[in-house]
């Protein structure tokens, strides 16, 4: 006798394609499909294996100290850092966080675009770009990033309810995807998706970031919000049927990691633990910053995925 249980799912999570190979109009060596699940995470035969993104930045001043220590030689060379994440760490995706744009009175738009282009040249993995977070400069930053990556199906972040127009415009104008971030609330996530749609972003270009609270400091809210978004999607709410991304970077700066005598081990443990839980709640892109987090997380996702039915 084989046991089954039907929770009454009606809908699949939308598939989103990220990155573009030469055949698809880009220059990446691979493109990924994410989403497509018709059941809970790791259950059933549908969907695609979660991906691991390694996140780097162009101005390490605000980067977690423990990561700066772990990446000393690369920290000021984003292109080499990206190549390292690709060839040595074997991440699935690279995310460049344009931290330089977060400085006061930022104006070096040319410099930022040079960085983006150098990373696109240094790695052929699909790229996520985390841009500015300031309405004053958003318009220029996202327009330039969008243009620089035209054809590559970048994932541009981050759209928020109070400032989403520039990200949306860049995605529409240059054919990219958007990360839609809302503050740990299922209904706000839904509202933002509707706003993006009204701005003209196609539903299959949206990835939901419900915001990942730090482990021990609100992560449980994120965990449940992810579960609720996934549940709502499977039950037919098309406004929430988008893949989820989780970036547990807040967990790198909590007291327990910052003050630990084994700060690297702590950083890895907290990042991996948070990422695994996020994957179990439904996240399909896991963004980590500590280089030591990639191998154990990869192994964990592999084990969770290997014996999946039909895979």
């Amino acid at each position: 006798m084989n046991y089954t249980y039907s929770p009454g799912w009606t809908t699949a999570v939308r598939e989103v394609i990220i990155g573009a190979t030469p055949d698809e109009g880009g220059t990446r060596r691979i493109s990924y499909r994410i989403g497509g699940e018709q059941d809970l995470p790791f259950i059933g035969s549908s969907g695609h294996k979660p991906l691991i993104a390694f996140e780097i930045c162009d101005d390490p001043a605000i980067w977690p100290e423990v990561v700066r220590c772990a990446c000393t030689k690369l920290i000021d060379r984003p292109a080499d850092w990206a190549a390292y994440a690709d060839t040595v760490l074997r991440a699935d995706l690279i995310r460049i966080n344009l931290t330089s744009t977060k400085r006061r009175n930022f104006s070096d738009f040319d410099g930022v675009i040079k960085t983006v282009k150098s990373i696109l040249a240094a790695t052929s993995l699909p790229l996520l770009i985390e841009g500015s977070a300031d309405l004053e400069i958003d318009s220029e930053v996202y327009q330039r990033c969008g243009e620089a990556g035209q054809g590559e199906r970048l994932v541009l972040g981050t759209a928020e309810a109070a400032r989403y127009r520039s990200v949306a415009a860049a995605a529409i104008a240059y054919g990219h995807c958007v990360i839609a971030q809302s503050p740990i609330d299922v209904n706000l996530a839904k509202q933002l998706n509707i706003l993006l749609r009204e701005a003209g972003v196609a539903d299959d270009r949206i990835i939901i970031d419900p915001y990942t609270g730090a482990l021990g400091y609100g992560f449980e809210y994120t965990y449940s919000t992810m579960e609720r978004i996934r549940f709502a999607a499977l039950k037919g709410d098309m406004d929430l049927a988008m893949p989820l991304i989780s970036a547990p970077s807040d967990s790198l700066t909590v007291k327990e990691v910052r003050e630990s005598v084994y700060s690297h081990e702590a950083a890895i443990a907290w990042e991996v633990a948070t990422s695994v839980a996020a994957a179990l709640a439904g996240a399909v892109i896991l963004v980590v910053r500590h280089p030591g987090s990639v191998p154990p997380l990869k192994e964990a996702i592999d084990t969770l995925w290997t014996e999946k039915e039909g895979v």
Binding site: S139, G146, E147, R165, A169, A170, I172, Y174
Partner: peptide, 15 residues
């Protein structure tokens, strides 16, 4: 086209 793309961008983005 490339300039139109920028103009369209500014329209969507609200500038």
């Amino acid at each position: 086209d490339s300039i139109i793309r920028k103009l369209g961008y500014s329209l969507v983005d609200g500038s």
